[in-house]
Design a binder for these strands. Sequence first.
DNA 1: CGGAATCCAAGATGATACTG
DNA 2: CAGTATCATCTTGGATTCCG
Lengths: 136, 136
Amino acid sequence: MNDSVSTSAGSVSLLERIRTGEVLARDCPSREILNHVCSRWGVLVLVVLLDGMHRFSELRRKIGGVSEKMLSQALQSLEQDGFVERKALPVVPPHVEYRLTAMGEEVALQMDGLTSWIEDNLPRILAAREGKVAVG
Amino acid sequence: MNDSVSTSAGSVSLLERIRTGEVLARDCPSREILNHVCSRWGVLVLVVLLDGMHRFSELRRKIGGVSEKMLSQALQSLEQDGFVERKALPVVPPHVEYRLTAMGEEVALQMDGLTSWIEDNLPRILAAREGKVAVG
DNA sequence: CGGAATCCAAGATGATACTG
DNA sequence: CAGTATCATCTTGGATTCCG
């Protein structure tokens, strides 16, 4: 369905709203970016890369449970969005380095704030959950 | 090994050992919480509720593109984690209110930081993308 | 080593219809 | 109004295999 916009005589066009980057608008490109950085593996990649350059297999080892395919996919999304820089050295065996761009470090700090908060408050959260679902 | 530090927290420098802690462990419950608040609709629900109490259909109207089912599901996850409080008034027609708990407001602030950053930097991000995906 | 390609299972998502 | 139930579909995720 169409959502709000253009109510009064004021000519607030859809394009203008999109240009300002409204995550609540279904057609805004920011939704896609949000999904990339918030994706199951994307957020973890960002947090790990805050620690500096990593090679593919280092990332894979640090991020518990990620498959090669998913890691590769997450890295590609983040690289396309300009958050991660990929440098492949022309050697044998292959040597590829991943690191955050300046912009990537900014988002990564946001995600680190989130993951840190969750880790710090995990006991509180789990306690709240027990009180809700336990009844059975 | 690198960091065997776990929950002592407090005196450990953030930038020195960028938490390779809980969220990176595949079996840690924090992963599930992370996925709830980072889910496609969960993050938007949190951000909207930062504005105060909302009814179901108000949320649905504000969050462009969400279906009833997905909104309902996101709200249930967030309620279970103790981030959202649901109050159903016994009237006809039904009247249900959703609002953030104290804990929910804390996470919501984190997510708001993220979404705001994305909105503010969308032009930069899209520009970076153009340079990558565009013509070969 | 660092992927890409393929196949398949599982889960997310959405439109529709229905209920209290 | 605020959901739930159902079914069809699209996307994720993982294991395997192959390549430079």
